[in-house]
């Protein structure tokens, strides 16, 4: 265990923890957009910046999601400088996603009103946090979406802006998207995932054998079976997690019924 100073708190933590993890464990608020506990830190959104104070009193700005705690470190998460730098980041994000609730909430929190900068292009509503791309690649091992182009033209896209055969319709990208620019529709046994108006792919919904709820897609079932995940759903007889629990409970109750 090592000891660090977090604002006025003296806290202990394990070696190798990031400042963001330590702060959240102790109830210290740090906003993030590109962070997800199940993914490695990316340091992309710059919202989680904090100040590190050195023994000589000098302070430097660091992104807390990538900064590892070391013994005796002194971190300030709520200084005027941190506040104004975060406000600057939010102002830029607001230009990209003026309608996203998450961004508007942040803007309210940090007192950002109308951005002072002029909009050069129509905002597509995406803040390029990369969560969807990283989730698809690192959690699902699929790479159905990617970041295309660069600089001001950078955007989340499939290859050639066409439907992606690599998309299994798991919907993870929709779940992690902080702006809602990724969304899904389910109709007549088909799941469609969209990035704005662009269709990523159409997948076939599969109903649960017990309750009939369309809880997954054929492509996702096949992919989890192929990956050999220990809790993979039976592809021949798919049962949704809630019904699977009930089946398990019934199996456990059966021997008791004899008494």
């Amino acid at each position: 265990m090592i000891s660090i100073q977090l604002n006025d708190l003296q806290v202990e933590c394990e070696q190798g923890r990031t400042i963001l993890e330590v702060a959240r464990a102790h109830g210290v608020e740090i906003p993030t957009l590109c962070h997800h506990p199940s993914l490695p830190p990316a340091g992309l959104c710059r919202l989680c910046i904090v100040e590190q104070e050195w023994p000589d009193g000098e302070r430097s700005v660091k992104s807390s999601c990538t900064l590892q705690a070391t013994d005796g470190m002194k971190i300030l998460t709520d200084t005027d400088r941190v506040h104004s730098l975060r406000a600057g980041v939010i102002e830029l994000l607001l230009l990209r996603a003026p309608h996203a609730t998450s961004i508007r909430d942040l803007a309210n929190l940090y007192g950002v009103e109308q951005p002072a900068l002029t909009q050069l292009q129509e905002p597509d509503g995406c803040v390029l946090c990369g969560l969807c791309v990283r989730t698809c690649e690192q959690s699902m091992a699929r790479e159905a979406i990617t970041c295309a182009q660069r600089s001001t033209g950078r955007s989340v896209a499939t290859a050639f802006h066409d439907r992606s055969e690599n998309c299994v319709g798991c919907g993870s990208c929709v779940n992690v998207c902080p702006t809602g620019v990724l969304h899904l529709e389910q109709q007549d046994g088909v799941r469609r995932i969209f990035w704005n108006d662009q269709l990523l792919n159409e997948t076939e919904l599969v109903p649960c054998e017990d309750c009939g709820d369309e809880f997954t897609t054929r492509q996702l079932l096949d992919w989890t079976a192929q990956r050999g995940k220990p809790n993979a759903v039976d592809t021949e007889h798919p049962v949704c997690p809630a019904c699977a629990r009930q089946r398990q409970a019934r199996r456990m109750a059966r021997p008791l019924a004899r008494y």
């Binding site: 790479e143 159905a144 979406i145 990617t146 295309a148 660069r150 499939t158 290859a159 050639f160 690599n166």
Partner: peptide, 25 residues
């Protein structure tokens, strides 16, 4: 050409999305 990238993807195992990302970057 798109067909060329598709062939490279097929033969190397890299996804078409990965190739597109590099080619546009």
């Amino acid at each position: 050409p798109r067909e060329a990238l598709e062939r490279v993807s097929e033969q190397t195992g890299f996804t078409l999305e990965r190739l597109y990302s590099i080619a546009t970057f």
